[in-house]
């Protein structure tokens, strides 16, 4: 199987998806709460790798542009630190073949 067709990494997979990106994030996290978090489960359970941990600054970065709007992070976050909303009407992910 040719690897370019197969798409194995999340980064590759996300290139198959159409988005109408808003300039504002629909996901707002409480970074103070995040500082106490040991598991940082948002960084691995998210199917779109929206959350990444910046070790130097000890903060979570949020690439809301990639969000698939599934809601897993909101339920999984042990601190309830994610203020999860839908993107504004007409914005966000546009699934065509799902």
């Amino acid at each position: 199987m040719s690897d370019d067709k197969a798409k194995k990494t999340i980064e590759d997979k996300l290139t198959t998806i159409k988005y109408n990106c808003d300039s504002e994030s629909h996901l707002v996290i409480d970074r103070e709460l995040c500082k106490n978090c040991e598991s940082r489960c948002c960084t691995y359970i998210c199917p779109a790798k929206v959350y990444t941990y910046d070790e130097n600054q000890n903060i979570i970065n949020v690439d809301y542009e990639n969000c698939l709007e599934c809601g897993a992070c909101r339920i999984a976050c042990p601190y309830g630190a994610i203020n999860w909303n839908y993107p504004k009407a007409g914005y966000g992910v546009v699934f065509k073949q799902s």
């Binding site: 067709k5 999340i10 997979k13 599934c70 073949q97 799902s98």
Partner: peptide, 29 residues
Amino acid sequence: NPSDLLERLKEHPNVKPLIQDGEMLEYSA
């Protein structure tokens, strides 16, 4: 990570031949 788990399934010898040479059209969750 759920995507990594799906890759494991896709690599299974009984599953792989079913999708071989296919082109990914869309990923979703």
